[in-house]
Design a binder for these strands. Structure first.
Length: 932
DNA sequence: CATCTCACG
DNA sequence: GACGTACGTGAGATGA
């Protein structure tokens, strides 16, 4: 016996249950915790070097601790209804895995773990306790580690010290003093973990603290310790784990043996864990980290160790490779007959501007999918003579339908009005097919459907949706194409693997479509999807494709200028520090400022690293610390250079000379878009140096950039949705709302108002939109918290409607789990019913902000959708190219400037009809800075 | 891959 | 009385 794994089964069940989205078997039995548990066990068994493994469970709620203290764990709620049937299943799962499931009357799993840990140590074995329960940390020692299986993190003495302030041997004493609200352990009132650690450090142990209580200076603390000494001793008995249970299962029986594969498969299939079952079938379960030989997949190139867990063929998975035109025609005819077909492209790149089509997959029925290779080449490391030269007839190239012949057939299908095409992120496929002059219509998008139905709840990538809705673990791209340096483009993937991967994508897409589309009606989200999101797909596709012209020469000059100035600053900084170091490293900088130079500055929480953010440095700079000011300058220039000048130059598409961002439709929790590769929504504007980067965004010759942005759209929405008469009036009359707020809250006259007072009112208005807190406002304005609290009180007194709106919004979020925008978009709010007040407060602020931010997003989306048609009807050639949340940027021919200005303004201002007017500011210029 | 920092609305 | 803070994003550099 060398290494014993003791798994805290009961602890894991709860975490898996709360950590994983709901899943159920076809018969309705919930199985998410079981799934998480089995995944965890399989991973452990596969990776561990342990020779003895057991899973320990609580048996009943009553244990010996209830005899000592009847209220022990009395505050625990009943387990959720969906969890109850899973307790037994998890035990079944353990046995199916060939592992002992041990529990004992009157004791908790923790006591069993303590006892077996002692026994294992007596046998001279190492122990790993798989759990993240802090109550088990008392067992950690030189030969005993804990492992958090969900976070995959080892917990040793250092981590215990991080949590409790002192080592594992003091955990019991600290818990005895601090108590534990989740287990209802009383401890001593007014003493938390921090104070407890300090006391134990000072007096050695609990008895020392209680004996020395008289000498404690703080009166309250002294009194509590004297009065509650017995409670502390009782608490110690409750938290101390029993390592002397007369266990009746011998530790020798924990020895790892080969699981009974048929029994395990039967169990997995009964839970409908098809992907896990497939994994077991294809790879087996191999303890000791020694994988059994994998049956060589046909055509597996070079027998790479990263062999993919490709599921076996079987019912519900009938994937076909199409290599001749007749079969393709037959397939297309079937799809036309059905009227709905899922489509997915495989390409050589995620960058749509560079990607070349490699193959297409289709699915017209669940489990019935095909893959049509179009540009596959031979396998990579085979052809020593193939230097990867373009379209050279690689010796190993497989049989394929000539690309253009196949595309001509597919064009008829994809452009057929009578056939609905379903994609997962179909904007990508539209880009690819557009190169070959193929459009896709009509279409639906499962990613967008999921975003409309469940935005804010989870991501909307296919792998995640498959896991969530189908309980299916999809084949990962890495599994077929490899990863890192060894990754190949999809045209180098062997066809047998390509089929399984690509056809699965189409199959999954079709299945998801079946599950999601119908829900729109029941959940009253048809209009959001059909008028707001689905039409936006092609609008965004066109914007991305058009791109924006960026002046590389200008950026290069700027970059060189920055490089020189960064070098100068760096020398000065090193001189001030007395030696060289990496200015870009917050760690090194923090040590220089606060250790070497001994400046006053606080540690930051979690990781114990010094904070060196701009706020901290500005504080120091204000105290005339030269190095801080220099670092701030350095940071600004380094940021501009690395994130903007240099990165943007690299992003210019050589073919178009333009930058083509990607707008993510399903990334945010509020309904906003997000932009990436490059992000065009965070181009600098607030500083003079930063604006120089904006100047490099230019219009093509004979054109101008037009920037149109909504004026104070979020405040206007607030006035409308919260129905605040004073605010609505102010907007109707075109008054300065910040000044008006100042007049109302601070009671100062509008005439001759101090700009500082107006600034404070503006901060309050912004704060309201963000779900105001005294702390946040105080920090923003640099005032004290009580003072900020007074401002907020004064504000709410003047605008009681705002408070009512906030309360209603929070109540709705708590009741439904989501809030709704003006146009019916649902924003789900994670954590709104959390017990932890910090997290709940956070969720409440998000809930208050979401309808406002999301409503503004709805409005500009409506404008974006209307704009192309309106421009076309007016005979204008102006085109939208960028969106920055409340701003649209168009590229406009010189002679259309006036017409386009009027039309864009009209479309944007009429995108919604609120009880306040919408106002749009328009600017024109040769570059973005000028236009803005 | 997590963390820190910082750019935007 | 503690929690740990204004809302929403994406990207680059560091360092494990």
């Amino acid at each position: 016996m060398k290494h014993v794994f003791l798994i805290d089964g009961s602890g894991f069940i709860f975490r898996a249950f709360h950590g994983l989205p709901p899943m159920s078997r076809p018969d309705g039995t919930p199985v998410n915790a079981v799934y998480g548990f089995v995944m965890m066990l399989m991973k452990l068994v596969e990776e561990t070097d342990a020779d003895h493994i057991a899973v320990l469970f609580d048996r009943a709620r009553k244990t010996f601790r209830n005899d000592i203290y009847p209220d022990y764990k009395a505050n625990r709620a009943e387990p959720p209804e969906d969890l109850i049937p899973q307790f037994a299943l998890v035990r079944d799962a353990t046995r199916a895995m060939g592992l002992p499931a041990v529990d004992m009357d009157g004791f908790e799993a923790d006591d069993l773990i303590a006892t077996y840990t002692r026994i294992a140590l007596e046998r001279d074995a190492d122990v790993t306790i798989v759990s993240s329960d802090k109550d088990l940390m008392q067992l950690v020692g030189p030969r005993v580690n804990m492992m958090d299986a969900m976070k995959n993190r080892l917990i040793g003495p250092d981590e215990v010290r991080e949590k409790f302030g002192l080592g594992p041997d003091k955990v019991v004493d600290i818990q005895a003093l601090a108590g534990d609200s989740s287990d209802n352990i009383p401890g001593v009132r007014g003493i938390g973990v921090k104070t407890a650690a300090q006391l134990i450090e000072q007096f050695g142990d609990l008895d020392g603290v209680l004996a020395g209580a008289e000498s404690i200076p703080q009166p309250k603390r002294r009194q509590s310790l004297i009065e509650q000494a017995d409670m502390a001793r009782l608490s110690r008995r409750l938290v101390t784990l029993r390592d002397d249970i007369p266990v009746d299962v011998d530790i020798d029986s924990f020895d790892v043996r080969e699981p009974n594969a048929p029994a395990l498969l039967k169990f997995l299939e009964a839970q409908n864990f098809r992907s896990l079952a497939a994994k077991v079938k294809s790879r087996g379960v191999h303890p000791h980290g020694k994988p059994k030989e994998v049956s060589p997949a046909t055509g597996d190139v070079g027998g790479k160790p990263s062999a993919a867990p490709i599921a076996e063929e079987g019912p519900g998975r009938n994937y076909e490779l199409i290599q001749d035109i007749e079969t393709l025609k037959r397939w297309i005819a079937e799809a036309e007959e059905k009227g709905v077909v899922a489509v997915d492209c495989e390409t050589t790149s995620l960058d749509v501007m560079r990607a070349e089509i490699v193959g297409v997959s289709l699915a017209y029925e669940e489990g019935r999918a095909c893959y049509i290779p179009l540009a596959h080449k031979g396998a990579p490391d085979q052809g020593a003579l193939d230097f990867g030269a373009g379209d050279a007839p690689a010796t190993g190239a497989p049989k394929q339908i000539p690309r253009d012949l196949a595309l001509a057939q597919l064009k008829m299908l994809l452009e057929d009005d009578g056939v609905l095409k379903v994609g997962q992120n179909i904007k990508y496929d539209m880009h690819i097919f557009q190169k070959y002059d193929i459009s896709i219509a009509p279409y639906d998008d499962t990613m967008v459907l999921s975003f409309v139905l469940e935005g804010g709840l989870h991501g909307h990538g296919m792998d995640e949706l498959a896991r969530l809705h189908l309980g299916l673990e999809t084949i990962k791209f890495k599994d077929v194409a490899g990863s890192g340096k060894a990754q190949v483009t999809f045209d180098r993937v062997a066809l047998d693997k390509a089929v399984e991967y690509a056809a699965e994508d189409a199959d999954v897409t079709l299945r998801l479509f079946g599950l999601l589309k119908g829900r729109l009606v029941h959940e009253r989200l048809v209009s959001v999807y059909e008028t707001l999101e689905r039409p936006l797909v092609t609008v965004l596709k066109d914007m991305e494709r058009h791109g924006v012209l960026v002046d590389a020469v200008q950026l290069k000059d700027l970059s060189d200028d920055f490089t020189a100035r960064i070098g100068d600053l760096e020398r000065e900084i090193h001189a001030l520090a007395g030696h060289e170091f990496n200015v870009a490293s917050p760690k090194q900088l923090g040590e220089i400022l606060f250790d070497e130079m001994g400046l006053a500055g606080a540690k930051k929480g979690k990781t114990g690293a010094y904070g060196t953010g701009a706020e901290v440095l500005e504080e120091l700079a204000a105290q005339d610390v030269k190095i801080a000011a220099k670092v701030l300058d350095w940071r600004q220039l380094a940021k501009l250079k690395s994130t903007y000048t240099d990165a943007l130059i690299k992003q210019i598409d050589p073919a178009t000379g333009r930058v083509h961002t990607s707008f993510a439709m399903a990334a945010t929790s509020t309904g906003r878009l997000a932009s990436s590769d490059p992000n065009v929504q965070n181009i600098p504007v607030r500083t003079e140096e930063g604006r120089k980067i904006r100047r490099a965004f230019i219009a093509k010759p004979g054109h101008k950039l037009l920037s149109a942005d909504y004026s104070q759209i979020e405040l206007r929405l607030l006035a409308h949705v919260a129905d605040i008469d004073a605010l609505k009036d102010a907007f109707a009359k075109g008054q300065d709302v910040h000044a008006m707020t100042a007049a109302q809250v601070f009671g100062v006259p509008l005439e001759g108002m101090d700009p500082m007072v107006r600034r404070q009112a503006k901060a309050i208005n912004f704060g309201i939109i963000y779900g105001i807190s005294a702390f946040g406002l105080a920090r923003q304005l640099g005032i004290s918290r009580p003072e900020a609290a007074r401002y907020i009180d004064a504000y709410f007194e003047r605008y009681p409607g705002i408070r009512a709106y906030m309360d209603e919004t929070k109540a709705a979020a708590r009741r439904d789990g989501y809030v709704t925008t003006l146009f019916g978009r649902r924003c789900h709010v994670a954590g709104i019913n959390e017990k932890n007040p910090a997290r709940r407060n956070f969720a409440e602020r998000a809930a208050i902000n979401a309808p406002i931010q999301g409503g503004a997003a709805d409005i500009i989306k409506r404008a974006m959708i209307h704009l192309p048609g309106a421009l076309a009807r007016a005979g204008l050639k102006a085109v939208s190219i960028l969106q920055v949340h409340d701003e649209l940027i168009l590229e406009v021919p010189d002679n259309e400037c006036d017409d386009a200005t009027a039309l864009v303004r009209a479309v944007m201002e009429n995108a919604a009809h609120l009880e306040v007017p919408l106002l749009v500011d328009v600017g024109l210029g040769y570059n973005w800075e000028q236009a803005h």
